[in-house]
Amino acid sequence: MKPHLNRPEVRPPSPQWRVSAPPVAARSAALILAAALAVATAAPVLAGGGLPHLSNFEAGPHVVALYNDSPTLVTGRNVLTLEVPPDADPASAVLDLANAAGRSIHVQLRKVSVRGGGESGGHGGAGGHGAAGEASSAHASGHASGHDSSGASGHSAAGSAASGVHQAGTPEQAVEGAVAPKVRLRGAVDIPATGTWTARLRLADSSGVTYTAEATLAAVDGGPNRLYLVLTGSLIGGAVLLGTIVRRLRPAPAVAATRRTK
């Protein structure tokens, strides 16, 4: 329905002409906002893993969590993360993947460094959040959760406790819990084929005893849906091709003008 636009008063057609000088208040507000945005401080908002949980290794008394940067193991590049408990020796950890076809891949693990202090433990001082584990549940419930950056002052703690988005308690709560931080190790691996892969972990504890554990993982195709790619690719390619051909078949402007004259 077209709105009835009768107004009781007549307005000038371009009232914006009245205002052209930069308003001081607006400039000041913009300046303050820009200054606030520019101040980058080390905020007590902490990052954890925030990664999908694939499996747990039970290496003797140690439970080592395995995470990936995708919800499952996928063909192509995967960045795997191990969360090693503090009583194990992270330097001794060796991770290999093998499939039924006899293909074996070694994962080169490196410690994850934490900005803003702390060991490679996952939680940068706010230990004991188990953020990565919560992240997986968040993904499972359809919430991407994001980097399980936990809010300071209980921000995300309240927000995600119910929503499944991973979260953490306040730094104060972490200190009260006094749980030693776990150590994170990360490594990239290229999975060449779908199917079942067995992940083998060797880990020693501080006393030098070595344990071995296995976990079975299913690798699926990575990347986008092929039907989607074909459809969008065809539409884009087809439209551009059609446009190009029609333009070629169309008479040049000079020729068209001549024809019109005749």
Partner: peptide, 19 residues
């Protein structure tokens, strides 16, 4: 950074929550 094999984590925020 992870794309280049540099594994780092830390605070995700640039300002405190109250700010």
């Amino acid at each position: 950074a992870a794309l280049f094999g540099i594994y780092v984590t830390g605070p995700t925020g640039v300002l405190s929550q109250s700010t």
